[in-house]
Amino acid sequence: MSESSSNRNLQVFLNGIWKENPVFVQVLGMCPTLAVTNSVRNAIAMGISTMFVLVMSSMLVAMVRKVVPKQVRIATYILIISTFVTIVDYLIKAVSIPVYKALGPFIALIVVNCIILGRAEAFASKNTVYRSVLDAVGMGVGFCIALLCLGGVRELLGSGSFLGVPIFGPYFEPWVIFLLPSGGFFTLGAWLLVFSLLKERKARRAAQEQSA
């Protein structure tokens, strides 16, 4: 594999983590992002589940891309995605019932997460299996990071703990609002603001360098 091809593949992987982060840049998959990030444990479980579905469905979509007629491609993608969502449903139930209960209907709702269908249609249906998997892993990691960012802040402020371990001691009065849906919006808004500021600063620096 040539160096430029390796760089391109690395770029495909990194795109999902930073430049095209599904939550902070593309603002996709808001339903699970806001709903199940009231604790780090739930955020990790949802992130890994979505990443599994994303990677497996991207791989399968890339494999069948040449044989699936255009007219039935979306139906085929949905079929593939819902298969892996069903598998994830069984797997979570087999691993931990409390996590299964905490994620509740949001496991089944992974099927309508637009990140997954979006990557199948925009990337996996036009690229090789290898590149599609790289893209899906990148997007999945980006999604996990975003959920962790939200889950971390919300659990820290809403419960005073991280992964169930108390951080601030007994005198901390938890800000319960961060565990409620409104807390999800506040936290997401704050993170989007941080990303916008970083983006703006980068653009300003680039403009300054150009003018210099």
Binding site: T76, T83, T86, K93, A94, V95, S96
Partner: peptide, 27 residues
């Protein structure tokens, strides 16, 4: 094509169901 994909998906689901059945029942 749709039939082939649906059959493959069905097989995957049945395999996953069988593989996780005991663990789910135990949990």
């Amino acid at each position: 094509v749709m039939t082939a994909v649906a059959t493959a998906c069905g097989l995957l689901i049945v395999t996953a169901f069988q593989a996780t059945k005991n663990a789910i029942e135990h949990n």
